[in-house]
Design a protein around this nucleic acid. Structure first.
Lengths: 372, 372
DNA sequence: GTGAAAGCGCTAACAT
DNA sequence: ATGTTAGCGCTTTCAC
């Protein structure tokens, strides 16, 4: 058997000597050093070099030194694709967001990055731009990289997305929504509750004719989370026996300052007597406030305004914007904290499969008690 | 020889039959289907399955169908780590940004994503939070994934970063700055020129005592680009024989609304007669405007304000904010356009190694001619 | 503490 | 149009 092997090897050696550069369409640039090059230079086995990176304490100081020097002279950077293939651990965590332009989603990314850094995972971020088809595409792209966990935004997924996610075999976290029946885990808050909270806040202050502004939808883009907020808002008004038809859905997501200003204009045209408005996002609220200034409508006297998100600008406005805050960076961090034990192979704690990070009403200057 | 090979194979088969689960520390979840499983089910060779994904037109319709069915029943998703290793093309483009919380950087990411999508590349985003040590760490993490191109922000890199980048063997783009001697390529604009432009704009309108607000620095964080803007600003004032000492560097990057408001306060304490201010970012400018409102300083009458970035909020302010605009999404798109031919193996066009996307003064309401 | 062997799942190159 | 073979660069496993 031994002899047979030798023969095969020699035959192989002959062929491979012929073709030096295997793939001409390979990325250009001088060939990178491999673990093999390092091992030769340091006169150790490849395994020793591997251990140098994964478990340096196992090496004898002298060996460690030789390897370190070789690594340095060759400017060796281990190839994680090869490592992943062999160890069956990619070191990736996939994060799929609607958009990065929203600073709250960016905060999620930052929080998650921070939480997973000590474990040496790398984030693989994708964004959908609120396009419905894009989520599927992104999930497939991600799955091809064999992430060790997948974090998606929201609870609404196409059938195919849901199928891909439930079959993917790694932990899945649904972010920023709390589905009744999560695919796997969920970390978030209730968007519906936020709408309700906004409506109740406005009613409690004595506002009478209350409207809302959110994003519309097109054939290929939706903002499910904003829509949930509007729904909660309508519910609260209805169950209080109030008018709940003053809900403007304007423009395609994401909602911007400008869309907020326009949305308010639409609302005022619909019902000039509106005395308070909830906008699905602070950005729209700020836009609405600017529109008020242009129209000489006093805030909060002429119009009460409440937003969502507690974006940085909210507290800085004059008057400062009343809003509902969610700690998005914390959301990301919590997600990381839920995932880390799972990635270490520990079983999921049943209580941590659905984490509500809650929300907080930040009453500031744009809402105030109305004189009856 | 043939017989020898058979023997080796049989021996190998025997061993591998013994150990079913090779790596117990592998990520949990049922074993994913491999190209081999598909090939068996479809009764074709593995290459045919591979071609099904890379070049489906090559297959006979009947073969194509059989493979498609097998792929579907097994829910097969090709493992890109294995593919990358074999083809020596990772399909990654690395993008290293200071932060995602800045919507202009997010815009870059979006633009770049859009540009590279048709070629089926995937972005690998990392952020440094303006920390100097983080850039090195990020670059090393990225290099381990063998990206086919690396995009970094700015021209200032530590020695080690510069070394890693110049030795990495793939195209490198420096973003949003135009170094005199780029490592490889650069797509951006002159931050210094922006500072100059701001100063000249204010001088041309007749403002007399002109200040600026930027971010400070700590031991481990800097905003080189903002600093460049301040430098250009100082230069312009100096060469016009004006006072150039009213430059406040406040707080650690990134500059926020709040920091802008505080920065203005510092500036006013330093020199109450200031009649115009340039802030290194629109966010700080907005913060400064809010501070003005709190102090009943009229804008632009009492204080002229000019920012940078043309963030969405700029045009929405009342009065709308004068600023200097750079099309950041276009910056990302251009970067993609420069990279794509290189990734296809074409030679770099010498003219496209340094692309200036330029800038535009957006004169709006916060600056106006001063009555002498 | 170190090494040898085998194989992770795919594709380039060549053969038919 | 499809198949065969030999690796890609690493890590697991097990032997010493």
């Amino acid at each position: 058997l031994m002899k047979a092997r030798q023969k095969v090897k020699r035959a192989a050696a002959k062929t491979s000597a012929v073709r030096l550069q295997r793939n001409p369409r390979a990325i250009p640039g001088q060939r990178k050093a491999t673990i093999r090059d390092v091992s030769k230079l340091a006169r150790v086995s490849r395994m020793t070099v591997s251990r140098f990176f994964s478990n340096p304490d196992l090496l004898l100081p002298a060996t460690h030194d030789r390897v370190a020097r070789a690594v340095k002279t060759l400017a060796f950077v281990p190839n994680r694709a090869a490592g992943s293939l062999s160890s069956r651990r990619s070191g990736f965590i996939a994060l799929i967001l609607p958009s990065l332009t929203n600073s709250n989603f960016a905060a999620v990314a930052h929080g998650l990055t921070e939480a997973i850094r000590p474990a040496n995972y790398q984030l693989l971020i994708g964004f959908t731009e609120y396009k419905v088809g894009e989520e599927e595409r992104q999930i497939e792209l991600m799955l091809a990289r064999r992430p060790e966990a997948i974090v998606v935004t929201g609870e609404h997924h196409s059938r195919r997305c849901a199928a891909l996610l439930s079959a993917c075999g790694v932990p899945v976290v649904e972010l920023s929504d709390l589905p009744r029946r999560p695919i796997d885990m969920a970390v978030g808050f209730s968007n519906r509750e936020i709408g309700r909270m906004a409506a109740e806040h406005l009613m409690s202050l004595g506002y009478g004719v209350i409207g809302a502004v959110g994003a519309g939808r097109s054939d290929d883009s939706v903002d499910h989370r904003g829509e949930e907020r509007l729904r909660g808002f309508e519910e609260a008004l209805k169950s209080a026996g109030r008018r709940s038809d003053l809900v403007v859905r304007h423009g395609i997501p994401p909602l911007s300052y400008e869309r907020g200003a326009e949305g308010l204009a639409v609302l005022l045209a619909l019902e000039p007597k509106v005395d308070a408005v909830f906008t699905v996002s602070d950005l729209a609220a700020v836009g609405a406030m600017m529109e008020c200034r242009r129209r000489d409508i006093a805030v909060p006297g002429g119009l009460g305004v409440i937003g969502f998100g507690d974006f940085d600008i909210a507290a800085q406005m004059v008057p400062p914007l009343t809003t509902i805050a969610v700690e998005f960076e914390n959301l990301g961090r919590q997600t990381g904290n839920v995932l880390l034990p799972l990635l270490r192979g520990e079983r999921a704690h049943p209580l941590s499969r659905r984490i509500d990070v809650g929300m907080r009403l930040m009453q500031r200057g744009t809402t105030a008690r109305v004189a009856k």
